[in-house]
Nucleic acid binder design. Structure first.
Lengths: 350, 350
DNA sequence: ATTAGCACTCTCAATGGGAGAGTGCTAATC
DNA sequence: GATTAGCACTCTCCCATTGAGAGTGCTAAT
């Protein structure tokens, strides 16, 4: 790629972004020249700033203000200037330590990851619990509750649990239910929703089992779709401290966005295929509602089986380096957790 | 109780609160006298207002402003003035309709209740999923995953599901696991965490089962404590529109409160014993952080077995009548849902 | 007991001006 | 040719001032 910025312009842009991210106020030429990194006068810096503005990397809110980065500027920063920072050792250790305490509980691990991420980046964090793209039936159980009601409990291969209540016309005793469940488990084992739905059943099958089949298909289907209900959202209160949300309109916009499901889910495709951390800045978003915020997110989990999404949402003025390294570190960590649980060749138990 | 307010004062206080709740601006004597309910002059109203202020039911933000209710005023309103409104039929029907679509899924029902409540009262709503105060083991399952890893799935009598991953030194085949699980289910059935922990086990029990027992005790114990992770919080963005949160400090305070677990959980005891809807207003709260907001909440569920808490949180300027009737209606509805699922004599299945 | 009238107080919005910030340009310097 | 000092210029932001308006409490009349 032909790089249209010279060394000085790059240095100025980098310093400007770092300073603006830190202070949230337009950065003046004096402030940049004052630092030790740039051994030139404010006037020289001003020339560079004028160049950068002409090229669209920075903008000036008004005549007598300093400059602030444009979305294009941030993009350049992320692409060429920030490098690939990693989280400081000390922080890594703290995180590891906290994770050790919940190591084998997926729910808690995702929750913890969300809250850690929010605190690390001082922005809102969102984590979806991991789920299979195409869950398979591992096991189901029929438990008699009272009278004609039976609870159907489903365990998927990825460890997901769901249940459904079934009501029958006649009462069943647990004995009979267990027999039916045993047969069903034999027949339905390891099938996906689609496979199970398409399965040809012998005509002499117990009617109960036919009914159970239908329910299982429904439950497996529901596991397939990305459920947003259990999404972990953390650090909303961090956002409030950001100066860009001083005006309540923007804050409201943001909260609406975080409360609504659709927009968050629309981010999922962005990381579906690719590996690594994705950064989406301001007007790069397809949705209008997100035009003035940025998102840093990554997929985590075992490729193709169980996986989820972890990310940071905040104003475009965001510590991208820190965000990227935090997201990367935590997504790797979650992947490890999942690997420990579901990893290695999943045994196809008889 | 000797009622220290006369008829006119009561009428004035009621009107004032209704108006203030609606408009969020201090209410002047003229505004009250203008309405059709009070057939007196502003001057007369002013006298009543002066009385009410002296008695502490209302306060004046500054000399040339109208009056606003004090916490004591709200309390009086809730106790004596607002009556027992019920939700309009039309709204009841809309709610019923929406509930019909998720009738038998507890998770979704609680989530739906939270979001409906938030919208009904235009404030933040919080709903804890139902859980047993003392859960009993209904059934557990041991599922081989890979190599030495085994997933322990627990179903409690109230339908709650949990799981835990166990790692053993030696590999087990599913056959062996099932045998052990069957024996365990026979022995441990219907026990609480405490009972299971205290259970005397014969010395010839498989060591695996001893290990499982320990895990089961842990899992049951965790079900017992009110988990806040899965708490449904809805309507945060509703709060932003409230004028009292125009200053970001107060909004931040509120968000902190809603994000933190401890304070929300501290409300649970308030409804633990009692039945019916509880209202806690401003400085009636024990926690400083909640001094300028009000809470309307109720227990729902089957007494003594599965139950949860549903409530509204907002500024003290809150439509108490509507809040109380909404909370009552939704808590009854949730109770019905639970009753349908777990209700009637739970069968002690063999 | 109620009410009209009125003086009084306090807030709130608008106004205007001045200080300060930061720039772009020009001419001088290295 | 790149850098820099100097300076005029522009625009925002803060502050003090001011006046209108809102709402009251009090007093005297009904």
């Amino acid at each position: 790629m032909v790089d249209e910025l010279n060394e000085r312009q790059r240095a100025v842009l980098r310093l400007l972004i770092e300073q603006y991210v830190a202070t949230a106020r337009p950065v003046a030429s004096d402030a940049l020249a004052a630092g030790p990194q740039l051994q030139v006068s404010p006037a020289t810096v001003r020339n560079a700033l004028a160049d950068l503005e002409r090229a669209g990397y920075i903008v000036q809110p008004h005549t007598s203000a300093g400059r602030i980065p444009s979305d294009k500027g941030y993009r350049y920063f992320v692409e060429h200037l920030m490098g690939t920072a990693t989280l400081p050792q000390a922080e890594q250790r703290t995180i590891d330590h906290q994770f050790h305490q919940v190591e084998l509980d997926v729910e808690e691990a995702t929750h913890l990851a969300a809250s850690l991420l929010a605190r690390l980046v001082r922005n809102a964090a969102v984590v979806t619990p991991p789920h299979s793209t195409v869950p398979r039936l591992k096991h189901f159980q029929l438990l008699g509750l009272a009278e004609t009601r039976v609870m159907l409990v489903l365990v998927a291969q990825d460890g997901a649990l769901t249940q459904q209540l079934l009501t029958f016309d006649e009462a069943w005793d647990q004995e009979g239910l267990s027999v039916v469940a045993a047969e069903g488990n034999r027949r339905f084992h390891n099938l996906t929703a689609a496979e199970l739905g398409a399965l040809e059943l012998p005509t002499d099958l117990p009617p109960l089992l036919v009914r159970v089949r239908t329910s299982l298909v429904g439950l497996l289907g529901r596991l397939e779709e990305p459920t947003v209900a259990r999404l972990y959202r953390e650090g909303l209160s961090q956002l409030i401290d950001q100066p860009e949300f001083r005006e309540t309109d923007r804050l409201k916009q943001m909260l609406d966005l975080l409360e609504g499901d659709t927009i968050l889910l629309s981010l999922v495709p962005a990381v579906q295929g690719r590996d690594g951390v994705q950064v989406i800045i301001g007007d790069e978003h397809s949705s209008d509602q997100m035009r003035n915020c940025s998102v840093v997110l990554a997929r985590y989990g075992l490729s193709d089986t169980v996986n989820g999404v972890i990310g940071v949402i905040g104003p475009t003025r965001m510590p991208y380096g820190r965000a990227v390294s935090s997201v990367r570190y935590l997504s790797d960590l979650l992947t490890n957790v999942l690997d420990q649980i579901y990893g290695v060749s999943p045994r196809t138990d008889a």
